[in-house]
Design a protein around this nucleic acid. Structure first.
Length: 526
RNA sequence: GGCCCCAUCGUCUAGUUAGGUCUAGGACAUCGGAUUUUCAUUCCGGUAACAGGGGUUCAAAUCCCCUUGGGGUCACCA
């Protein structure tokens, strides 16, 4: 039977990074087996604006190139793919359950049920449903329903039985039905609850493999029972570990951002993100974008290949060597039996490492297309179409080399895009290497003339000239280069100094050097 | 608390199904060294783990039991 998997997000307005990993495993399993990957929207209790809440989720799938065969926008033979539009299916299944006696109307007031639950807990007893409503005759039930009495429909759990599953990841897991309360499957008005709608839809969509996070393991016995009561063939299960916060075993959560900011393992990512985001005009401190969301990575300039590679290695491995996997290699090599059982903490360092690798695989043209929107949004360039601008940016990117791990790293070379009097200066290092060094100032002043007169303002001649400048004066590179860099770029570190000079060009170099030296003297004077 | 799941370097993991070839392998991070007369890369090397205790066995990271620890879930949410 052809493999059919699904990912069923609730429209929450953002795509969770952990959810994306679950979706990836589903997608991979379907693609590997030449099966079908379905997107179904679990919006049974939503009154919110579905379009606005679903958009970011579909965007995340599109960004990562995870296409779906059936679902929103693309449709399919089993639609509609929104649970809110599948009510007739749930109604029919509910009728079936009621007439077959697998489910019953429970008229017990919620407060009463709650009280029983609490009492059981206090007496350290296992709570199971009282089933008092089962004593009511069919006629009385009909009368109550006609009278508009409130009730709830519960599945009648077959006490005494056991539910056993053979999970692809966890092996045999079993539950004792005698310990389970009867789960509510629908409300008085017939509106279905999660477990029920899921089972009806998984069956209707012929889902062969339910691949989901471990947190759903406790829902599984209920769903198995529901499938049985409905006479469905139960799907195969694979409960994958959830994605944990870096360095922890706790499920990563949107509500804990503040806590994550203090997490040392998260630090680097936050610093990276904050600096890029603030350049782009986002309030970096707000939680509107955070590393828990897929959109965050897109916004700061990660590329799909990097994210995909990082996600696939979270809880899954091919062997003891393979770390780098392209999309097609993942599809070819993925398997459920190599999914690990324990929770996998997100590893920001490794994420950046994968990202660097895949960024390095991009062509110059691809990098240019990736970087341009960032510069534009930050107001560092005006026209992304102009040939002159594109050529210049391409040169900066080439100069950046491996320093460009994410597109947002281009801002670390902002000295190439700002006016000469707008260069942001690292004052601390400027004071140390320029202001407080009499010889550095003197040398740089002398150097101005050579820079002004050198015939060819290119990296190699500049390198040769500077080199002999050092030799003639018995200077070490460290005596001059850092100071020169600080004067031109404001930074203590950066790309190749000689190519930086060339790209900046004679005019900007002289203007900046002059200004920096006069600033240095002013600072020194007090 | 009930039910369920999990447990190898700081982190992601290989090895556990078929016990020996594991003085436990790889990657990221980290630390040293070389290269790059700046910076980043690259290269070489180092530090670093089987949660604890009992068994079974000639032999256990691998099998069994217990303990401890961590986590998930307990809705008329999804």
């Amino acid at each position: 039977m052809a493999v059919r998997t699904r990912f069923a997000p609730s429209p929450t307005g953002y795509m969770h990074i952990g959810g994306m990993r679950t979706a990836l495993f589903n997608w991979l399993w379907a693609r590997k087996n030449k099966g079908t990957f379905i997107l179904r929207i679990d919006d049974t209790d939503q009154q919110r604006n579905i379009d606005a809440a679903l958009g970011p989720i579909l965007d995340a799938f599109r960004w990562l190139g995870m296409d779906w065969d059936e679902g929103p926008e693309v449709g399919g033979p089993n639609g509609p793919y929104f649970q809110s539009q599948r009510r007739s299916l749930y109604d029919a299944a509910l009728q079936k359950l009621l007439t077959s006696g697998h489910a019953y109307r429970d008229f017990e007031p919620p407060a009463e049920t709650q009280a029983q639950r609490e009492l059981a807990e206090k007496e350290k007893r296992v709570y199971v449903s009282s089933r008092a409503s089962l004593a009511i005759t069919a006629d009385e039930v009909a009368a109550k329903v006609a009278a508009g009495d409130q009730f709830v429909i519960r599945l009648k759990v077959p006490r005494g039985e056991k539910v056993v599953i053979n999970d692809h990841v966890r092996g045999t897991v079993e539950w004792d039905c005698s310990l389970m309360p009867d789960p509510v499957v629908a409300r008085s008005d017939g509106s279905p609850l999660y477990n029920f709608a899921t089972v009806v839809d998984d069956a209707a969509l012929d889902i062969t493999h339910v691949i989901r996070a471990e947190e759903h393991l406790s829902n599984t016995p209920i769903q198995v029972l529901l499938h049985r009561a409905l006479g469905n063939k139960t799907p195969e299960w694979a409960h994958i570990p959830y994605v944990a916060a870096p360095g922890s075993k706790e499920k990563i959560s949107k509500r804990k951002i503040e806590q994550y900011r203090k997490n040392p393992m998260f630090q680097k990512l936050f610093e990276l993100g904050d600096s890029v985001l603030s350049r782009l005009g986002f309030d970096a401190k707000s939680d509107a974008l955070s590393p828990v969301m897929v959109a965050y990575y897109q916004q700061v300039g990660f590329i799909p290949a990097g994210i995909l590679n990082a996600l696939v290695r979270l809880g899954w491995s091919y062997d003891d060597q393979t770390e780098i996997l392209s999309r097609s290699e993942m599809i070819q090599k993925f398997s459920l039996d190599r999914v690990i059982k324990s929770a996998a903490g997100l590893d920001p360092d490794k994420m950046i490492s994968f990202q660097s690798h895949w960024m390095g695989q991009l062509t110059a043209a691809q990098k240019l297309d990736g970087v341009l929107p960032f510069l534009k949004q930050a107001g560092l360039i005006d026209d992304t179409q102009s040939a002159q601008t594109r050529d210049y940016v391409a040169q900066v990117i080439d100069l950046a080399g491996d320093r460009l791990r994410i597109f947002g790293d281009i801002f670390q070379l902002d000295e190439f895009f700002v006016a000469d009097d707008q260069v942001v200066r690292d004052e601390k290092n400027f004071a140390k290497r320029v202001v407080s060094s009499e010889s550095a100032i003197a040398n740089l002043e002398t150097l101005q003339e050579s820079l002004a007169t050198i015939s060819e303002f290119k990296a190699q001649p500049l390198h040769d000239m500077l080199q002999s400048f050092l030799t003639e004066r018995s200077l070490k590179p460290g005596d001059l280069f850092p100071a020169l860099r600080l004067c031109l770029t404001g930074k203590a570190q950066g790309a190749d100094l000689f190519r930086t000079l060339e790209l900046l060009g004679r005019d900007r170099v002289l203007t900046r050097l002059k200004k920096s030296l006069s600033d240095a003297r002013a600072i020194k004077a007090g």
